[in-house]
Structure formats: C-alpha cells, structure tokens
C-alpha cells in the first residue's frame, strides 16, 4: 500500500511539470507586454519599456526562461514575483491558501453532515412526500446564485439580527456565513447522488441478506447499505473539495476573505502573468493531492479496491479455492 502511495506521488511530478510548461507557454502567447504591465498605468516612453524588459529578463530566449522558471519551481518552490507589485507569489499563496482551505473544509463538512443523512433518509423513504419536499428544497437552493444567497444571509444574520459579522477574517464566527453560502450550491447534487447510490444498494442482495439475519433497520441501512454506497459519494466529495480549493471566488469577494480566488482573478484581470501561472500550478498541485487522498479513501472503504492497489505490484491476484 505504501508503494502505491509513493508511486502516485512520483507520478505527480511529471504531471505538474507538464502543467507548468503549458501555463508558462500559454502566458507567452497572450497579447500584451509584461514590461508595460509592470510599469503600471500612465504613459511610458519606448526607452523605459526596453529597460524594463531587460531587467525582467524578457529578452532571453524562451527555453532559457522556461528552464529558469522550472528550476526555481522545483528546487526552491519559488513561483517568482508578481509583475504588478513585485511581491513574492510564494508568500502570497501561503498567506491566502489557509483561508480558502478553511472555507473549503467547512463547506465540505456542512455538505456531508447535512447531505448524507438527508440522502440516506430520502432513499429509504423514496417517493414519499418527505422525499419530494426535500428534492424541491435542495433544488431550490441549488438554483439560487451563491452571491445572492450570501447577500441574503448577510442581510439577515449580520444587519437584522447582528449575530455575525458581515465580512473579514478573524475567529470562527467570520467563517460561518461564507461557509453556509458556499455549501448550499453543492448540497442538492450531493444529496441526490447519495440518494441514487443508496437506492441502488438498498435493492441489492446483500441488504436482503442483512435483513434476513435479523438486524435492525438502522443497522442494515447504516452498517451494510451505506458503506457499499460510499464509492460514488466519495468521488463527489473529492471533486468538490478539489474545486473549492481553487478558491470559492465569489464568496471570498463578497465576504472580503483574503483567499486564493480573488488573488487569481485579479491576477488574470491585470494580466499578471507570473501570478496566474503560479496560482494555477498551485491549484493543479492541490487538486492532484486531493485526488490521491480520495483514491486512498476508496481503498480504506472498499477492500476490493485496496486489493487492486496492492496487487498491481505482483503478477496475478490472490484467489484460491
């Protein structure tokens, strides 16, 4: 199993290299001159622009620049500096990422805590009024744009009731509203997937067997049905979490949370090449790690998958009479 993990981590490196090369090259093709952007708004003479190009090393051949960039990236984890304000991208990312992470973690937790029991319940009580009402409510929440929900939450809980602050970071209470606003969108999909997965498993033979052993409904549903329904659910959780790590931008802007989202979007808007490249490489990296973790969770949940991971190293699996 350890070998599997190590193998996956090793494969990560060429993946990220490819992402880095693609991003770096793409940014080269984008119209606009980094030197002009670095000089800022206002009028600049050709002379100034040339000097800036020299100092930024833009006149060096593509391969040299690519090599330098990759070298810095791999050996020093250095993403370079922002061409707009000269700050270290590495520092900015490490300062901002924890905030995005907090929101992502919080949202996933809320989604699971609310969505899983709801999905299981509506599967067990499929096609009853309870099921239909829950479908209606979750779809309604799904259709509401997250920024609108965010603003409504602020109006109610911050302005009217005064229980929670409307923006900024600080203690736990600053993250309550952003997390709620962020999780509502994915709740419907998650609940429906849980429900669908559970429905399939509930009608399977193994549930009949469990019932025939005389186990209580609760033990049958949560002890036998749910563990078998988890695989697609885990996939969804993993993907959503990976997505959110890229920054729940709208939420972060509304609630003024200094996360990765606005950083990247502002970088794109101001054509800050280094920020965009660095940000995307970082997001690719964290997404890959999340996918690896998801795959590991599968192994934890389903021994057949675990056997696959282990067996890959040897020829033929283990099966005997």
């Amino acid at each position: 199993m350890i070998r599997y993990v190590v193998k996956r981590l090793v494969i990560l490196i060429p993946t990220l290299l490819v992402v880095a090369i693609i991003m770096f090259t793409l940014m080269d093709f984008v119209p606009g001159d980094p030197a002009v952007i670095a000089l800022g708004s206002g009028n600049h003479t050709q002379e100034e622009i040339e000097l800036k190009r020299e100092s930024m090393g833009l006149n060096k051949p593509y391969i040299t620049r690519l090599g330098e960039y990759l070298g810095n990236l791999i050996f020093h984890f250095d993403f370079g500096t922002s061409i707009v304000d000269g700050t270290q991208i590495k520092t900015a990312i490490s300062d901002r990422f924890p905030n995005t992470l907090k929101i992502a973690l919080g949202s996933i937790l809320v989604t699971i805590i609310v969505g899983l029991p709801l999905g299981v319940r509506t599967a067990v009580r499929a096609n009853t009024w309870e099921d239909k009402i829950s479908l209606f409510i979750t779809l309604l929440l799904d259709c509401m744009p997250s920024f609108w929900v965010g603003l409504l939450l602020v109006l109610l809980f911050a302005l009217k009731l005064g229980w929670l602050p409307s923006s900024g970071v600080g203690g736990l209470k600053y993250f309550v509203l952003p997390v709620i606003a962020n999780s509502l969108g994915g709740l419907a999909g998650f609940t429906r997937q849980t429900r669908a997965s559970m429905l399939e498993v509930i009608r399977s033979d193994l549930v009949t067997t469990a019932r025939s052993k005389g186990l209580s409904e609760r033990e049958v549903i949560y002890g036998h049905a749910l563990p078998n329904a988890l695989i697609p659910i885990i996939t969804i959780v993993g993907m959503r979490f990976g997505q959110m790590l890229g920054g729940a931008t709208i939420i972060e802007v509304i609630f003024s949370i200094p996360g990765l989202g606005p950083y990247l979007v502002n970088g794109i808007g101001s054509q800050d090449y280094t920020v965009v490249t660095g940000g995307i490489i970082f997001i690719a990296f964290s997404f890959a790690i999340i996918m690896l973790l998801t795959d590991l969770v599968y192994a934890f949940v389903d021994p057949r998958i675990k056997a696959q991971y282990v067996a890959r190293n040897r020829k033929g699996g283990r099966k005997d009479e």
Binding site: L159, G162, P165, G168, I254, S256, P262
Partner: peptide, 18 residues
C-alpha cells in the same frame, strides 16, 4: 484598515457598525 472590495458590503459594514 479593513479591505472590503464589494461596495454594497461596505455599506452593510457601515450600517452594521463594523
């Protein structure tokens, strides 16, 4: 100094005594 980029949120922050 607090950064609040969204103009409507600044109004909210002011009204909410933040």
């Amino acid at each position: 100094i607090k950064s609040i980029t969204e103009p409507s949120m600044r109004s909210v922050a002011l009204e909410n005594s933040e």
